[in-house]
């Protein structure tokens, strides 16, 4: 009966994947596609954060620095040397890994709120640095005025497209990739180590788990993929402003979406990212030009209600429904749902 379940799940999954792949044929208006791309990007970024914030339980409130470092390095290399962003993103990602190790080494000794505070402090520091650095040698950083991505028209090598469709497929692939990686981590030894140290760091250490080492690995993976998200943002918006890409709103949004969706699960952040970003866009679409700030107020209310009534994330809601559904349809289904608390 578990077998039936898996089959059913994989059928649903396959259908979903096919639907997602065919989506640009149905959604032809660039604006809708743009909204969908933004939703998927947020889902991706929330999933990246989830690796260190959810699985390992390290409340990083400064993930914006990784989107920033990926984006800035890639764009600077492209603007200065014409290096294709496809190659630049590895440099940016590499730099993010280095940065995460540099930050992680001293701070992963800190616990709870102290670690969160340290990440806030570091990210604020980096925002100030970016705001005040006009150029380093011959590299233009742009300072507070921001950095423009040199426009070369539609060029696949330069990661610039006039159509939204390539961006859609790129972000979709990125999302699949991060889901796959999250699933792999969760089922690997690393995933169990992370859960162990999240639940009780001392107990985990006593069991012989190298706590700092595992945190550093999770942090590096999370930083690398977050940086790729930053590169994608840069090539989609084509303009980098320190406060927008590295600031508190970028950092907290990732955390927010992951927690509302269900942190520590594979699909929670994805669902949170897509749903909340979509709600925010829809509300702005209908109310944006009208009463000042009403759409933000409504958005805030929705998030508040979700946190009060669904504190373990939207994913839990989906799981409950899924369980009821399968129980109804294969009578004997008690076990399948009940013994799969981690879910998805």
């Amino acid at each position: 009966m578990t077998g039936i379940n898996i089959n059913k799940n994989s059928v649903i999954l396959a259908v979903l994947v096919v639907l997602l792949l065919l989506l640009p044929m149905v959604v032809t208006k660039p604006y809708y596609l743009h909204v969908i791309i933004i939703c998927l990007l947020w889902a991706y970024l929330a999933s990246c954060w989830n690796i260190i914030g959810g699985f390992a339980g390290q409340l990083s409130l400064g993930h914006g620095i990784y989107t920033a470092i990926g984006a800035y390095i890639t764009v600077i290399l492209f603007n200065t040397f014409g290096l294709s962003p496809w190659l630049g993103l590895f440099v940016g990602g590499g730099a993010a890994i280095l940065l995460s190790l540099m930050i992680g080494y001293p701070t992963f000794g800190l616990r709870g709120a102290y670690y969160a505070l340290a990440t806030v402090a570091i990210s604020e520091g980096i925002v100030v640095l970016l705001n005040n650095t006009g150029s380093i040698g011959r590299f233009t950083v742009g300072g507070a005025e921001g950095l423009i991505v040199k426009s070369v028209g539609s060029s696949a090598a330069a990661f610039q497209f006039n159509s939204k469709i390539p961006y859609y497929y790129i972000v979709l692939i990125m999302l699949f990739l991060i889901i796959f990686i999250a699933k792999w981590i969760k089922e690997s030894k690393l995933g169990y180590y992370l859960v162990a140290l999240r639940e009780d760091e001392d107990a985990a250490a006593a069991m012989g788990i190298n706590v700092r080492h595992n945190k550093l690995i999770a942090g590096a993976i999370s930083a690398f993929f977050t940086a790729l998200g930053g590169v994608f943002y840069a090539m989609l918006i084509r303009y980098l402003e320190p406060n927008a890409i590295a600031g508190a709103s970028m950092s907290t949004q990732m955390v927010f979406l992951a927690i509302v969706g269900g942190s520590g699960t594979v699909l929670g952040p994805v669902i949170g990212g897509i749903l909340l970003a979509l709600i925010s866009e829809i509300i702005r679409f209908y109310l944006g030009g009208q009463l000042m700030g009403l759409h933000l107020f409504i958005y805030g209310m929705i998030v508040l209600l979700m946190i009060i009534y669904q504190p373990r994330g939207i994913i839990e809601l989906f799981e409950k429904i899924g369980r009821r559904f399968s129980r109804k349809h294969n009578d004997e289904g008690g076990r399948s749902g009940a013994e799969d608390p981690s879910g998805a």
Binding site: K29, Y31, H34, E241, A244, R284, G289, H295
Partner: peptide, 23 residues
């Protein structure tokens, strides 16, 4: 006149420009 809210955020400004033009 159709008014769109940028929230003062560059990324939102981009997506609203897309909306105004294509939608």
């Amino acid at each position: 006149m159709v008014y769109a809210d940028s929230k003062g955020d560059p990324a939102v400004g981009v997506s609203e420009a897309e909306r105004l033009i294509t939608q």
